[in-house]
Design a protein around this nucleic acid. Structure first.
Lengths: 149, 149
DNA sequence: TGAATACATATCGCGCACGATTAAATCGTT
DNA sequence: AACGATTTAATCGTGCGCGATATGTATTCA
């Protein structure tokens, strides 16, 4: 015989199973991808979030900290220290906007700009190591973007 | 007229666009999901990775640190401090395995076990806030799992 | 003009996530 | 039994990621 409490427990056991959680699949896949990028980016001396920040700048430079935060969906409390490290590495320059002293303008240095070619190699190596057909990757990417939160 | 260098540059610009990177879509979606969980988990006094660790234990307790690391795909350097915090919160107990003193056995306390019901509410609220049909979520989850890295 | 408000970035504290290293226990082989 | 290799967890240092808060600049409007 089965009590109501047992049924509720069974439901909890089913619903909360790790392999049924979208959140864990996402968390785990993001960690795995970061780990996969690490050895590729070591050659450039970049961390994974730093690489993403450089992608933003390669797309369009200069940009303000705020614009980069919007593009990457990150707070200034994350971005400011990261950008200071990129500045320390000589890849970007930080300067106040003369037209609005609140803003800080981030621009690529020559060294930062020159790194773009190597980045192309990183992107290609990543694709190779994933060993998944491009259409599948594009589909996954678009589904992730649709996950409006 | 267009030089070879210009063509190579165009290719780099296209390939490296942030909105074409699977890695960024994944990174960003994972951050968004963590942010969405935060207010829900605040009520339980758990962080998001702590919640995942509790999911593992609600599924089956006791387990060793190594087993949990395998389930969550995390190193002991991540897990040990996290588990110590859960122990401090009174949700789990940590003890050496008498049969093999290298192992540390993690078991739910009564308080940790009792939290499972509230966790069920968290999972339901998360689903509601996502506002995405279940089949789409299941499909995305399975695609993420397939992303073997 | 001057006070109130809003805005852009920076700072701080906490908790991951991981590579490298260490310490202790166990296992395997002789 | 003994010693080297392996296994398990812990420790340490670095870099995020974010909420809360601070700081300085610009805007608004009385």
């Amino acid at each position: 015989m089965t009590s109501d409490a047992d049924i509720a427990l069974d439901k909890a056991v089913e619903v909360l199973r790790l392999d049924r959680q979208l959140c864990f699949a996402l968390y785990s896949a993001a960690n795995r991808v970061t780990r996969l990028y690490r050895p590729l980016l070591d050659a450039l001396g970049l961390t994974y979030p730093q690489y993403l920040a450089m992608l933003v700048l390669w797309e369009h430079s200069p940009r303000t900290v705020g614009e980069m935060g919007q593009a990457l969906d990150l707070e200034s409390s994350t971005l400011t220290p990261l950008l200071k490290r990129l500045e320390g590495a000589g890849l970007i320059a930080r300067s106040r906007d003369p037209d609005d002293e609140r803003r800080v303008i981030i621009s690529l240095t020559d060294a930062g700009d020159a790194m773009r070619d190597q980045a192309l190699g990183v992107a290609e190596q990543f694709f190779c190591r994933l060993d998944t057909p491009m259409p599948e990757l594009v589909d996954l990417r678009e589904r992730l973007k649709r996950l409006a939160v």
